[in-house]
Design a protein around this nucleic acid. Structure first.
Length: 212
DNA sequence: TTTCTGATGTTA
DNA sequence: AACATCAGAAAT
């Protein structure tokens, strides 16, 4: 039973933190990003996701994080991408249409959330690596495992349509997110030349990035 | 400060 | 056996 988002207080929301006054202004979510946003070149989608709001409606309230760090996984030719192993039960969502969540278990105890990009069959996605707490998070959001824990995202969200429903990404503040830093992706040293590509993007100076 | 290791389970 | 991780301990 989800409370419609329109029932949330307008314009100004509390951060879900007792030490922060409820009147503290934070970005207003707005309507979820639509399919065409995701149906573009993965690096463009990745960079434009910075500053957007990841919104999860749970039974214990709406949890919101502002995306501050992402990684692009370009497709089946990208040796660092799960899709480079081909279409398997696990990777089938990466090969599906854009705008859906690909959530997987890693190291037995954490989840990572991706958003599928580009056309069906491409196998591309963007990994969300860090969020800045906005509302009602369960702990810090600096890291792909931590942010899933903080937003209560697990494998039950695998395959969810991000353009509608309980897990969405919304525009937030219409102002530009700020300067973007490009770095190699984390933890993909096995991927040869692909490990060196600058496909990790984060907001310069943001304290909630997983590593500076 | 950096480096290591244990927890934990799916994957191909 | 490896893994798109994290927390805490050990080493430097």
């Amino acid at each position: 039973m989800n409370t419609p988002f329109s029932a949330e207080p307008p314009q100004v929301m509390d951060r879900g933190d007792p030490h922060v006054p409820a009147s503290t202004p934070v970005p207003v979510p707005g309507d979820p990003l639509e399919r065409p946003f995701y149906d573009r070149e993965t690096r463009v989608v990745a960079r434009e996701l910075l500053g957007k709001l990841l919104v999860h409606r749970t039974e214990r309230g709406v949890r919101i994080g502002r995306i501050v760090e992402v990684e692009a996984y370009l497709g089946a030719h990208d040796k660092a991408s799960h899709s480079s192993r081909g279409l398997t039960p696990r990777t089938r969502l990466m090969f599906g249409p854009p705008g859906f969540a690909y959530v997987y278990l890693i190291y037995g105890m954490y989840c990572c959330m991706n958003v599928v990009t580009e056309g069906e069959g491409h196998g591309a996605a963007v990994l969300i690596r860090a969020v800045e707490p906005v509302r009602n998070l369960l702990g810090p959001g600096n890291g792909p495992g931590r942010l899933c824990r903080a937003l209560e995202i697990d494998r039950s969200s695998n395959g969810k349509d991000l353009t509608e429903g309980t897990l969405t990404i919304c525009p937030g503040d219409p102002a530009p997110a700020g300067p973007v830093v490009c770095r190699p992706r984390v933890g993909v040293d096995y991927a040869g030349v692909w490990a060196r590509r600058l496909l990790r993007f984060y907001l310069r100076g943001n304290p909630h990035v997983s590593r500076p």
